[in-house]
Design a protein around this nucleic acid. Structure first.
Lengths: 348, 348
DNA sequence: TCATGCTGGTAAAACGTTTTTCTGAAGCAA
DNA sequence: TTGCTTCAGAAAAACGTTTTACCAGCATGA
């Protein structure tokens, strides 16, 4: 079995090109970057030489001189239990895909930083011009790291207790859409399963839920779950909820990994969805769609969200003035079988 | 509305640290990288100084000197119609997620290169030590670019007509699993919808299909579709197929975007799945799971595939000898409603 | 005593660009 | 002629590391 061997490609540098074209390296640089005018004749000689020799600028050297890397990173401080999950897809990857496409428009590449290990470590020693950060925590360590290093940062979802450019996801509206949908369908007694970490999304959902519960005269049941083992913990919490009190007529469970767990608990208890209990979640990912029945969720327009975030980051990197708050597109409801209204449940 | 302003963080360099610790920059470098022994006392002085000053090595400068960037890129030459699609997820992102996690284990970050625009351009001017490439084409331009630059490359799925390290996805087995599943369920007349690009996956599926058709005495119907508009083209092709000939009892459509199109065509024709026509696809992504009924597909174990690919690339970058062919984990069938056997279809 | 080797360290070169500063030539007006 | 400006380009500095070559001191062994 033959081994392939690595070619040790005696690198061709800008001085090789300069020699071949009979000019100085500075002129070659100017011809390439277009920062200074070079004569048409010399430019074409240079371009010929470049083609001839197959010259490719050394990105590291360029980056060292200019202080730019033409790369941005995307981070999530969500534990892998949520961010990854069954097929490692989800929120982070969906945003990343769109961000990568948008970044490429300004000749920037996107570095994917998986949500593991020491985040401040992950920020060090990666050459990036800026960072996108998903759903920051209060005192988010990644945000600490990027901001203290002076790296332009845009968070997706507002940060808590500090200033940072962010795309302001309208969590209040998300909660409103889901809660009124459940109520409109007849739900009168439904708990909220939510992450216990201090994130804007969790906080806003709790707030909206509490408000509606109050207006409805419903005893609020807020089950706060550790996101690290989202699915298992949610399953246990729902099983416990069902076992101890009256069976709820619906469950609001924004985080999709927890929704999977909740569905599991309902199945185990022999409860039918949506006939006995109706379920709604927030993120319309692979989990929501592959449940049986499929879960009602929101179209968060993540593609657009990622796009505006990336564009804002781009401008920030260029040193342009950017409003700290960037509006996000409005989410819309995707009603699916899991929350279909049940006849006879509709009166208050 | 207040504007946030970028801090111009007067960078602290290795010579600042050296001065503070009363040693030379070389010694600081040695202390950090551990490449040469430095006395315990001096090392701790250096570490104190680093902490004090908040020194962070400049990745670009380091990269320029060492020729390493500690980053790998992942490319796909699939057109966006397939690689991206409805929610921009899929094959590429699933592999990317796992690759990112694996890469991080060797302190390497992963650069996500979206499948757009000029691929050879995308390879230039990104500082990477190696590349992963999904399902290469014959004469793949990305592969041309990386190999000609001497960038260590591992493809996922074998390349065609040239040598390159690759994880050898067992397309023949994939085809076998799906085809025998359909046949075992009673299918006797089913076309193959496949991409027309020259990729190992397409070629192997055609080969296996032809072989089975021959053994079965079935007239082979191979519909080759342009992957660029996969969903629309597949819909049209299936609509045409149904309209012109006898209605098939199944459809084999490996590429998930095409499966979505096929399902659409069947719906429009008023044909039921699986009662009238049974459907099976290959990649078990969001498309397969969100169809109604959900599509039979394969568990390709992409997480593991990405892991072994990334590890092999890692070794390649380190200059270790790596076998050109890396075995992939075996795919398994995930039978779902879309291909459920129909009573009365089982006799030949 | 001398050669030898080890240890912990330094000075300086090197990496490949971009940027700053400088220069010579040409053009033009007074 | 002189002085001033513009232009295309060159020389050299600079970016922040790592690496190479070297050195002084000290121990070791013959």
């Amino acid at each position: 079995m033959q081994k392939l061997v690595r070619r040790s490609a005696a690198r061709v540098t800008i001085v090789d090109v300069a020699k071949a074209a009979g000019v100085s390296p500075a002129t070659v640089s100017n011809a390439i970057t277009g920062k200074k005018k070079v004569d048409e004749a010399t430019r074409s000689r240079i371009e010929d030489a470049i083609g001839e020799l197959g010259y490719i600028p050394n990105a590291a050297a360029r980056g060292m001189r200019t202080g730019r890397s033409n790369a941005i990173a995307i981070y999530s401080s969500m534990p892998t239990g949520v961010a990854a999950g069954a097929s490692k897809l989800g929120f982070l990857m969906e945003v990343a895909a769109s961000a990568a496409v948008t970044a490429m428009e300004t000749n920037t590449s996107l570095v994917l930083v998986p949500p593991i290990s020491d985040p401040s470590q992950a920020v060090r020693s990666i050459a990036i011009d800026g960072a996108l950060l998903l759903e920051p925590l209060e005192n988010d360590p990644v945000l600490d790291a990027t901001l203290s290093r002076g790296i332009p940062t845009v968070t997706i979802g507002a940060p808590i207790g500090r200033e940072c450019h962010h795309v302001d996801l309208d969590y209040a509206l998300m909660a409103e859409l889901l809660i009124t949908h459940l109520i409109d369908g007849g739900a009168r007694s439904f708990p909220l399963l939510i992450g216990k970490s201090r994130r804007k999304s969790n906080i806003e959902f709790v707030k909206a839920y509490a408000r509606h519960a109050d207006a409805l005269g419903m005893t609020p049941r807020i089950l706060e779950i550790d996101e690290a083992q989202a699915e298992e913990n949610a399953l246990a919490a729902v099983a416990n909820e069902i076992g101890t009190g009256p069976v709820p007529d619906a469950i609001l469970v924004p985080i999709d990994a927890m929704a999977t767990g909740a569905m599991g608990a309902l199945r185990q208890a022999g409860l039918r969805v949506p006939e006995d209990v109706r379920v709604a979640t927030r993120y319309d990912g692979v989990r929501a769609r592959s449940e049986d029945p499929q879960l009602t969720a929101l179209d968060l327009q993540l593609e657009e969200v990622a796009k505006v975030a990336t564009q804002a980051l781009s401008r920030l990197i260029e040193g342009e003035a950017v409003e700290p708050r960037i509006a996000a597109p409005k989410p819309t409801l995707i009603a699916r079988a899991s929350s279909r209204a049940q006849p006879g449940q509709c009166e208050p």
